[in-house]
């Protein structure tokens, strides 16, 4: 059991990284990674939303949607729940951490439509995870997102100082570097999990 949980965690963070392998959540990834300062806040917010989201959506799916035969409504239910969780975080951040709230700006409400968060909820269902497994899956998905954001922001701070052709300045070069990093993440594959067997 514990081996499986570690496998899910490692697999979600490195092998099936939400940004670099599954290409989910690219909008906040490119939008927030400009500066290192706001990365940690954004990453923690995403971790929180993903963990809580995958827990609540799992419970809703298992105990409400399946008994009533409403599996076909799962996307709209999940979006409703994720939006509420994001609103919840927004209200608390605005009161308790106004600096972080200002730094995140529009990207905090955008977590609502972050496909990585919806993706985690839907993948939990597709992969037939139980409650603990979906919790781990959601948490490590957020950690993977934070790692991707962190790596990208350190690179982009250096990119700002580099001499690049005018046409590639800003977002285009960020996409190209993201692509190269995705290639690097190809090196992480199933063999990483052999240690735990």
């Amino acid at each position: 059991m514990s081996g499986e949980i570690i496998a899910i965690a490692i697999g979600t963070i490195f092998i099936n990284n939400f940004v670099f392998s599954q290409f989910l959540g690219i909008c906040p990834f490119i939008g927030v990674s400009k500066k290192l300062d706001s990365v940690l806040g954004m990453g923690l917010a995403v971790i929180f939303v993903m963990t809580l989201g995958s827990m609540v959506t799992y419970l809703i799916y298992k105990y409400l949607l399946v008994p009533f035969n409403l599996q076909y409504l799962k996307i709209i239910f999940f979006i409703l729940i994720i939006a509420s969780i994001v609103q919840f975080i927004e209200i608390i951040l605005k009161k308790q951490l106004p600096f972080l709230y200002n730094a995140l700006g529009i990207y905090l409400p955008l977590i609502t439509t972050n496909c990585a968060v919806l993706g985690v909820a839907l993948l939990n269902i597709n992969k037939n995870y139980n409650f603990i497994e979906s919790l781990i899956h959601g948490f490590s998905g957020g950690v993977g997102f934070l790692i991707a954001l962190f790596l990208m922001s350190t690179i982009r701070e250096k990119l700002d100082l580099a001499t690049i052709p005018k046409a590639f300045k800003g977002v285009p070069i960020a996409f190209i570097s993201a692509g190269l990093m995705a290639l690097a993440f190809l090196a992480a594959d199933r063999s990483m999990l052999d240690i735990f067997k």
Binding site: L64, F68, L70, L80, I81, S84, I92
Partner: peptide, 29 residues
Amino acid sequence: DLLVGVLLLTLIGFFLGLFLSFISNIFTI
């Protein structure tokens, strides 16, 4: 079946809305 779906969605939305307004009352600025 359709009605149950609509009803369930409305109910959940209603309770989430209640929850959020409750939270925002606690954390007013």
